[in-house]
Design a binder for these strands. Structure first.
Lengths: 215, 215
DNA sequence: TATTAATGTTAGAATAGTCTAACATTTTTT
DNA sequence: AAAAAATGTTAGACTATTCTAACATTAATA
């Protein structure tokens, strides 16, 4: 696949998230490319079985096309995390660079990035990161702060990677997959009394709850 | 500049290192591209004042072209070091990835890479890394074996990357930047008695001296 | 030096990705 | 429902990069 095709697929995937139908016009606007150009690229992608296309009808990604798009999305999100957490760049600075790095052809490179980040399943916005087969985590993670008392959850990601935060999580033996049961929610300061892994009882401040993603 | 033009410039610069004249044929072989293609690209680069070109004559980089080439070389070498030292990839694995990353457009990214590596002036082969203005370090690293006794030098690179060699260097606490003072040179076997970092005294065999690059 | 070999150049075509101008279809508005 | 607006499509052109085939020049050799 060419760089251009990859960008079209990414756009198609993004549009399919928001809208129910995908039009040539929408792609053209999103990519800042004229409609006839999009039209011919759409035909090209259809020939390659990456999208389903009939004249004047709405465009759809095929299973194959969706998988390709997710693999690019994976590279993009891993790269953003890497630039931010490993290289210390600001969240607002990483997007443009990731747009370029996401097109690199090197499993070796991205596997290492994935490894250095600890195989994250969610990016700092809570958006899921597809796995290396282009599969998404089935469930969508939510911040613990939005969860209900009395229920049990599993830790699936964090929205903060400060050393102090991660150290704290370690100190209460909380890891990806750990069970978190919300016992009570303090209305006043939004702090939560919780039971971890069916054993330890403790209290999470509102700030901690906002930074824990659970399923 | 396009990616393709960058690759031609890089090739031109590389050829200008070894040969005194650069021919269309050499470029064609190096890049695995047919001669007529090279011919038209050469005309294109000449129009952009990146090279000097006259029919049937040898090709030369202009000052402008050389600077561009050095800036790409800088990005390549910094990237290789980054992949190796920060990401822990093997020296043999990094080249192909660096060939892709060197074309990224992001001063921010490369400045950060440079910073994380401590603004290195030489790569592990002792090859100089151009600065951000496309200038080469004035001094050229020389093998320790060609240096004079009684003088002090700084380790700036190695010509060998065998694990056994690098392990040895670690064992005597020798790193890039370490000071090496030559106390005496044994005429017979060309071994050297040296003082490292102003402290440790030891003896380097001729083979070791040949593989240490110093300033 | 005359011939052959190597190298260089030109001409013309192919592909990918882009465009504008013109025309077609669908959707919205009156 | 008719007219207008929005959207979609086709046709044809342009640039960048590549190729092959044919021809030109320079270098090497007999």
């Amino acid at each position: 696949m060419t760089l251009t095709e990859e960008n079209y697929l990414k756009a198609l995937h993004r549009l399919s998230q928001n809208e129910e139908t995908i039009s040539v016009k929408r792609i053209a606007v999103l990519l800042d490319i004229k409609m006839p150009t999009v039209n011919s690229m759409v035909k090209n992608l259809a020939e390659k079985k990456l999208i389903k296309y009939e004249k004047y009808k709405s465009i759809e990604l095929t299973e194959k096309g969706r998988k390709q798009a997710l693999l690019i999305l994976r590279k993009h999100r891993l790269t953003e995390l890497f630039l931010k957490d490993v290289m210390g760049l600001g969240w607002e600075e990483v997007h443009d660079i990731a747009e370029q790095i996401e097109h690199l052809q090197s499993d070796l490179f991205f596997n290492r990035v994935d490894e250095m980040l600890g195989h994250p399943q969610f990016d700092p916005h809570g958006e899921p990161i597809p796995d290396s087969h282009g599969r998404l985590p089935q469930l969508k993670a939510t911040p613990l702060s939005l969860c209900q008392s009395g229920k049990k959850y599993q830790l699936s990601g964090v929205l903060n990677n400060d050393a102090s935060f991660l150290t704290y999580l370690n100190s209460v033996d909380l890891q990806l997959g750990s069970q978190i049961e919300i016992i009570t929610l303090q209305e006043f300061d939004k702090s939560m009394a919780v039971k971890l892994n069916g054993k330890t009882k403790t209290v999470f401040s509102a700030l901690i709850c906002q930074n824990l993603l659970v399923l």
